[in-house]
């Protein structure tokens, strides 16, 4: 899975750079979450602007990351959900669980 991470005043931003987040690559994102949280990341923004398709496996990995963050009193927030991704969050009611922002900047702003 192609990902890019950036640091912004203590907040890690992870950009998912695949157009699909599904059963074929979601475990790779899970491993990335483990690596980040295992190396001290507390607050994480996951940017999904390039993800045009998500399935239940992709949703499950984001839930897993959210639980990881919560377990160590951190946060996992989402930004830039595309149409299909947004509709899947709404269908599964996960939009009620996650803090979802239109842009990375808005997500970062929420920490100040």
């Amino acid at each position: 899975m192609d990902v890019k991470t950036e640091q912004n005043e203590g907040i890690t931003v992870l950009f998912v750079r695949d157009d699909r987040l599904d059963a074929n690559n979601s475990e790779e994102l899970k491993a990335e979450f483990h690596r980040l949280f295992g190396s001290g990341t507390k607050d994480l923004v996951v940017d999904l602007s390039e993800v045009l398709f998500i399935d239940s496996s992709g949703l499950g990995v984001l839930v897993s990351g959210y639980k990881n963050a919560s377990a160590q009193h951190g946060t996992l927030k989402l930004s830039n959900l595309q149409l299909q991704v947004k509709s899947m969050f709404e269908l599964t009611r996960l939009h009620r669980v996650f803090d979802i922002f239109s842009t990375v900047e808005d997500a970062l702003q929420s920490y100040t």
Binding site: D55, S56, L59, G60, Y66, K67, T92
Partner: peptide, 13 residues
Amino acid sequence: SCGMEDKGRGIFI
């Protein structure tokens, strides 16, 4: 449980 339970999400969809 706030939608956090993974089991059954695919079939639910």
